[in-house]
Design a protein around this nucleic acid. Sequence first.
DNA 1: ATATTGCATTCTTATATGGGAATATGTCAA
DNA 2: TTGACATATTCCCATATAAGAATGCAATAT
Lengths: 123, 123
Amino acid sequence: MARAATTSDAFNAVAEPRRRQILTYLAQRERPVGDIVIALSLDQPSVSKHLGVLRRVGLVRVRCDGRHRYYSTNAEAIRPLHEWTGTFERLWSRRLIRVKERAEKSFQSSESKSPNPIPKEES
Amino acid sequence: MARAATTSDAFNAVAEPRRRQILTYLAQRERPVGDIVIALSLDQPSVSKHLGVLRRVGLVRVRCDGRHRYYSTNAEAIRPLHEWTGTFERLWSRRLIRVKERAEKSFQSSESKSPNPIPKEES
DNA sequence: ATATTGCATTCTTATATGGGAATATGTCAA
DNA sequence: TTGACATATTCCCATATAAGAATGCAATAT
């Protein structure tokens, strides 16, 4: 099997730097494609294609008005990523605390040492 | 140009579902490769390759002991993703508030309407 | 010394890009 | 109608997988 499509989910769509820039830009307010082209110095077909990917995974919304198409970031779609990454938060925030803990205690709680099969998803 | 390498950064590395599962699994405690193979029902070469990607972008750490290699998640490397996604937090948390705001006020502040070039990075 | 165990690496292949160029589509203006 | 303007779509292509199979290799057990 090859790599999953960029349109398979938000994680894949957001892996592309340009698309992240676009999302950030469109977070301020909705913008027509032309503005993105100028603001990010990309050529129009590229922007349209990136927007296509973002749209398919629901990361952006479109509002048509005449020959203009106003895109805007749909933050809700980014939320799952924030939450998944957030599950590791305690690990990085505890780092400093651990140093202190080890200085005090020094016993090993022998938790389950078996490779207990993980649930279904990584969430 | 083709798609960026999965090893180019944490965003790309994490785009693969299996790698996310591995990170979640290794967040509990360090584990030898064999445990991951069993826990996630993947074949060993696959796991090794995924670990290779995760290692290159610093998402996991390795500790060698005899013929075993204990891998563990390095949460610090996930932090940037959490922070980037976090920049959109106000957008999704304000949704409910906006409904209320609109009900009260109903004026349009005409902010900058030009495609002001974006800084350098999307962070 | 040899077999076994625990992992990593190599090879192959079907598949999906992302950028550039060219073109198609749709809307508004004269 | 004709033309300009805003976007989308299609082609081509160099590149990078991810999974499966086979193999390499170091450490340990016998």
